[in-house]
Amino acid sequence: MSGTSMTTRAWLLMLPLLAVMIAVIGWPLIDTIHLSFTDAKLVGTAGNFVGIDNYVKTITGSNFQRTLVTTAKFAIISVFAEMVLGVLAALLLNQEFRGRTMLRGLMILPWALPTVVNATLWRLIYNPEYGALNAALTQIGLLDAYRSWLGEPGTALASLIIADCWKNFPLVALIALAALQAVPRDIQAASLVDGAGPFARFRFVTLPYLAGPLMVALVLRTIEAFKVFDIIWVMTRGGPANSTRTLSILVYQEAFSFQRAGSGASLALIVTLLVAVLAAAYAALVRKTAGSNT
């Protein structure tokens, strides 16, 4: 079969998928871009063309800036904590001890649970009247009276970050554990004979094998954390006093709660652009990792 007819056939075979992709991604995206240049409401008229007005208002508005800071705080702290916890858990689960296999299986559980289940579970734990956290802290004397962890602006974001960490550190731990098992035994033995202590062994033997996979996990988790919606929506809906409002929640509120489709679309596109930058970093990283293995 000639090259040309092969190419034609390949395109023909891909056509159905391409058509579906255009229908569910391409067209809505173009429509969103169009919408973002109008003052359209969610229901009613198509709206008038307003140029880059929506973008200017969004970027210069205090709402967006505050939310961006909240999102960045959430993403940076939770991802950092997940990386540290994940690596520590992986190092622990890489040791030989009884029940290791069972523990490895159990560890995946929080990550495998649907986010809604996870979020509901943590709402119960944080409950100001009968929550387990309040009970535990008062019983051991660290707390005088029950608190509304999710109801106070000072503690809501931190409480959400803890819940998110609990859900997502197993993924990092799994990736790190797989990487740890790739560390050659001979190099570990050589470092023992060379007299390297635990920190030097981690730095010179383990980390070189851990760094690549961890970077991939870091970027993936950062993208996810930047887009976070479900866990926050179930636990606080962005409150109290917008203290846990992230970009995705803001987009939702703008488009659906306030029914401003035009500015909601511009906001969604800005978030998409931010995530695209992170995705590009991920792609570059994967290429670099693949390159260094050849």
């Binding site: 050659p184 001979d186 190099i187 033995a189 050589a190 023992l192 007299g195």
Partner: peptide
């Protein structure tokens, strides 16, 4: 091992990458 006054050469070289 570090206090045994030995040095070891491995089949896979075992160099720090």
């Amino acid at each position: 091992p570090k206090d045994r006054d030995i040095a070891m050469v491995f089949q896979s070289y075992a160099l720090y990458p």
